[in-house]
Computed example of a mutant assay.
Amino acid sequence: MTTVNLPDGPFTFSGAGRAFATPGTARFTSRIAYAAAHVVADPAADNTPGRPATLDWDATLAFRHHLWSHGFGVAEAMDTAQRGMGLDYTATKELIRRSATEATGPIVAGVATDHLPPGPASLDDVRAAYAEQLGDVQATGATPVLMCSRHLAASAKTADDYLEVYGDLLRQADGSVVLHWLGEMFDPALAGYWGDDAVGTVLTLIGEHTAKVDGIKVSLLDEAFEVDLRRRLPAGVKLYTGDDFHYPRLVKGDAEGFSHALLGIFAAIAPPAAAALRALDAGDTASYDEIFAPTVPLARHVFGTPTFYYKTGIVFLAWLAGHQSHFTMVGGLQSGRSPAHLGTLVRLADAAGVLPDADLAAARARAFFATAGVAQ
């Protein structure tokens, strides 16, 4: 039976996800696309708020193989993996090591300062913390992503503070790195990042270290801003969109260029997203638009305000799709979205074709909503 009672009424799954269930064989040729992967908690462990994260390693790594099998690179240990929201650095470091060891496709990994204790930190402490994590990532062979730092946001007084800290890191890097600009809708502690003239600071940094910057991931949910920044980057420096609202247009691009992708939503919609990207490779923009169109309402709902709880929806979808056996999260974050929000998510996910087994999705949805008080 594929019918479930949701908080807003009954719903029958369409089975649309069957069309995208089989991975393609061709790699993407016209765009680089990374999917930022979530982590699977060990459901038998004490993954409550404030406790060290305990992961189900088999399920966590199996999900990464799912992404690689569809042609995506994996963006490891990013904010989708609950950096700063339940995933401590001990678990993070092991996650990066294991993923890099098993990688069958491209992999980048987040470098931050989250092993420092919460609260104020000097710029020297921030610099040293970043350098330590940079060394950890480089040791695995993954490409580093220099993530925004809550500690730096709190300690930096001027644009020069950002330029000095990041400049030191780029000089230490063994090879190219990806910069990361995460907006405050994803993490309120990052308000004011890069200083008063943020664009000027970013362009100065990239201009001074172009040889070390592969690209910059921009997660600001502002399409016009991203396009303008993309057009101002030095030749050879990529813009990786992190805009989970406008990704089809940004990746498709225009006569003046396009964005590559490093997206959390791509982990949730990997099968149809892969089909869309292969259509773009073949020059079939009509199919590209058609496949991506129903994924956009889903993405906008997953990343709706408060945006920083989008991880809950990502994990709920992974459970419904059969990528893990339970709906629990490190830090107890499964409580981050309401049953009403998740009910709408079910409808949108079915329409987007991201649930390959309608019977399984319906059975799990019935179990969840029954416990939430919705009679089945």
Rank of each mutant, 00 (worst) to 15 (best):
D196N: 01
L123M: 05
D125R: 13
D196H: 01
L67M: 05
R337W: 03
S338D: 13
A372D: 10
G9P: 13
H209E: 11
A121V: 05
P23G: 12
R364K: 14
H38A: 13
H301G: 00
V218H: 00
T25Q: 15
G313Y: 03
D243H: 03
A36Y: 02
L355S: 00
R97P: 01
T305S: 14
S155A: 09
L123K: 02
W57E: 11
S219Q: 03
L55N: 09
V40D: 14
D79G: 00
H326A: 15
I206S: 06
A81R: 02
T371G: 06
V108R: 10
T29N: 06
M185I: 11
P272C: 06
G86E: 05
L221N: 09
A273I: 04
P356T: 13
W68P: 10
A53T: 02
G322K: 08
G343R: 01
A26H: 09
T12A: 05
E164F: 00
V111M: 03
D254S: 14
A35W: 12
P188R: 04
V199H: 11
F368I: 15
T295S: 10
D174N: 14
S122I: 01
L116Q: 10
A139K: 13
F20E: 01
K217D: 08
A211C: 10
D56C: 07
D228G: 12
R347H: 05
A235G: 12
G200V: 07
A156Y: 00
D136Q: 08
A35H: 10
T12Q: 08
R150P: 06
D168G: 11
A154Y: 00
Y193E: 10
P120D: 10
A59N: 15
T312K: 07
T312Q: 12
T22D: 02
D56V: 10
E208Q: 13
T371Y: 00
K311M: 10
A131H: 12
Y34I: 04
V145R: 06
P272D: 08
D79C: 02
I32P: 06
Y162R: 00
G343M: 03
A282L: 01
G9Y: 15
V137A: 05
I314T: 10
R366E: 02
H301V: 01
V40R: 14
P271G: 08
D197I: 06
V177P: 04
Q172F: 11
L229G: 02
A352V: 01
S325T: 15
Y89W: 13
H70I: 02
F308H: 10
L116H: 13
Q324T: 14
S259A: 15
Q334W: 08
D281F: 10
L6M: 02
D136A: 03
A274N: 07
L262R: 03
G253D: 04
G71S: 07
A293P: 01
S149D: 09
G207C: 06
D174I: 00
L116W: 12
A224W: 00
A41I: 15
I32D: 09
V346S: 05
G283A: 14
V302E: 03
D42R: 10
